[in-house]
Simulated scan of single mutants.
Amino acid sequence: MALESFNLPLAFLFTSPGPILVKIGPITIRWYGLLIASAVLIGVSLSQYLAKRRQVNPDLLSDLSIWLVIGAIPAARLYYVLFQWAEYAENPERIIAIWQGGIAIHGAIIGGTLAALIFAKLKRVSFWQLADLVAPSLILGQAIGRWGNFFNSEAFGAPTNLPWKLYIPLERRPPDLANFEYFHPTFLYESVWDLMVFALLLTLFFRGLSGRPRLRLGTLFMVYLVTYSFGRLWIEGLRTDSLMLGPLRIAQIVSLSGIVIGLAGLAWLYINKRFLPDVVSPLKENGE
């Protein structure tokens, strides 16, 4: 029996309860905002823990987290709005309505990377060390944040009848797919992929502490770029709401670029950078 022919009750596990968690008078708490806040808090705690294991001052990661939020979230929104400008030009008041969804992780990565570069220069610390310590938290945050798409009934894939299909309300379906009820839960695919990348990065981190294998500063960040981009490349091909540049899916173009940059970055690091020492010294002594 073909896999697509299954029609099991499991499908109803992927029916969104809606974007609002709770509403008390004028106060509305949305799932999307709660998930982003949770991802930030968990990410900061994890980065601080990893910093301690590399004998790096964890307070630097607390300071950096503020820069990352300021750099990443506005950039993620700006990235999305620019590629959907025709829609937002008619409704400019919606540009700041980030709680309704519509942020792009690639914009967040670009904005966060720029913020980290500036922070590293001002603090005279190693950008590569910072990038390594943040990378596992970043991919874990992406895994958590993708569930915001579930609650908002967005970022789903093509119609499907698989057991893990996702029900999308009529008002959230593309006009040309209005007659279909169930779609690929691409938010779930990416969340699971991100968790696997997270496990890989943590494994490399802790094996690197023991010197097996011996890593160079920046390795984890470059591995993150390659592995996340590879997953996003194929998952994006299933989506129905991709940001487009003519006939091309922008996320796939950026993902291909991420794979190339990550592989080239790994080659560059291993040609030009020294290995992590057996006992990692404080951040300010590691240099770039």
Rank of each mutant, 00 (worst) to 15 (best):
L3K: 11
E4Q: 14
L10M: 15
A11Y: 01
F14N: 11
V22I: 04
G25A: 01
G25P: 00
I27C: 01
Y32S: 07
G33I: 08
A39S: 13
S45Y: 05
S45E: 05
Q48C: 08
L50M: 05
D63M: 06
I66L: 14
W67F: 14
V69I: 14
A75Y: 02
V81R: 00
E87R: 14
A89S: 13
A89V: 06
A89M: 10
N91T: 15
E93Y: 13
R94C: 02
H106L: 08
T113E: 07
A115S: 07
A115C: 04
I118V: 15
A120H: 02
Q129A: 02
A131C: 09
D132F: 03
V134S: 08
S137R: 04
S137T: 12
I139C: 02
A143D: 07
N152Y: 05
E154N: 09
W164A: 01
A178D: 05
P185V: 12
F187K: 07
D194E: 14
L195N: 02
T203P: 00
G208A: 07
G208H: 03
S210G: 06
R214H: 14
L225A: 12
V226L: 08
Y228K: 00
G237C: 05
R239I: 06
D241A: 14
D241L: 12
S242K: 03
L245H: 06
I253W: 11
I253L: 15
S255V: 08
L256R: 01
G258K: 05
V260Y: 04
I261H: 06
L263C: 14
L263V: 15
A264I: 12
G265F: 07
L266N: 05
F275K: 09
V279F: 04
E285W: 00
N286V: 11
N286Y: 06
G287E: 12
